[in-house]
Amino acid sequence: MLIITCPNCGPRPVEEFRFGGEIPQPPDSITDPFERDLDQVWMFTNVAGVQTERWFHDAGCHRWLTAARDTSIDRFVD
């Protein structure tokens, strides 16, 4: 079972959460602020490894949290 640790509620099964997408980091080569915003919203890296994601605790505290997940093994990491 995939477990997410909610800062308010503690460890909970992933079924209690709604996926909010990854938080991509625009590459340094993009310097224009508008282009960086555009890249962050629309361009996803979808890495095979650790990526930072947003999750919403739908069945609990109704708060967003940020978590790091290793997509290659589908496990959350500290």
Binding site: C9, G10, P11, R12, P13, E16, A59
Partner: peptide
């Protein structure tokens, strides 16, 4: 309930139980 219940009293716990929040 598939998650750890609190041991202290009083305490609030919230989450899914039998698929219900």
């Amino acid at each position: 309930v598939e998650w750890p219940l609190p041991v202290e009293r009083p305490a609030l716990a919230q989450g899914l139980a039998a698929g219900l929040p």
